[in-house]
Simulated scan of single mutants.
Amino acid sequence: MNNYIESSIKQFEYYKSLGDKTFAQLTFDELKRELSEDSNSISIIVKHLVGNMLSRWTNFLTEDGEKEWRQRDEEFIDSFTSKEEFLANWNKGWDCLFGSMKSLTDEDLERLIYIRNQGHTVVEAVNRQMMHYAYHVGQIVFLGKLIKGKRWQSLSIPKGKSKDYNKEKFSKDKGKRHFTEDL
Rank of each mutant, 00 (worst) to 15 (best):
N2E: 15
V122E: 01
L35Q: 12
L109Q: 10
K10F: 13
S55E: 01
E85W: 08
S36K: 10
E85P: 04
V46P: 05
Y135T: 02
I45D: 04
A125G: 10
N3K: 15
F60P: 08
E68A: 14
N91Q: 15
L26C: 04
G138H: 05
D78N: 15
N2T: 14
C96R: 06
L109G: 10
Y114A: 08
L26Y: 08
F142S: 14
N91S: 12
D73V: 09
G119T: 09
S41I: 02
S100P: 03
K159Y: 10
Q11E: 15
H48T: 01
M1W: 06
S8F: 02
S36G: 11
Y135W: 15
I9K: 13
M131D: 04
D64L: 09
G149M: 06
L155C: 08
Q153R: 08
K174A: 14
I115T: 03
N117V: 03
K145L: 02
L112T: 14
S103E: 12
E84H: 07
K16A: 11
F80C: 00
R72S: 04
F23I: 10
L109K: 05
S171L: 02
D95L: 01
K10N: 13
N52E: 02
F80G: 00
F28K: 03
N3C: 10
M1D: 14
K32R: 13
F28D: 08
L104T: 07
D182E: 13
G99P: 10
K159I: 07
K47F: 00
T105L: 09
S36F: 12
V123H: 11
L18D: 01
S39F: 06
W69F: 04
I44Q: 11
M130I: 09
F76M: 05
L183W: 15
I9C: 05
G19F: 14
K83P: 04
I140D: 02
K102V: 01
G99Y: 01
H178V: 02
K92S: 09
I140H: 05
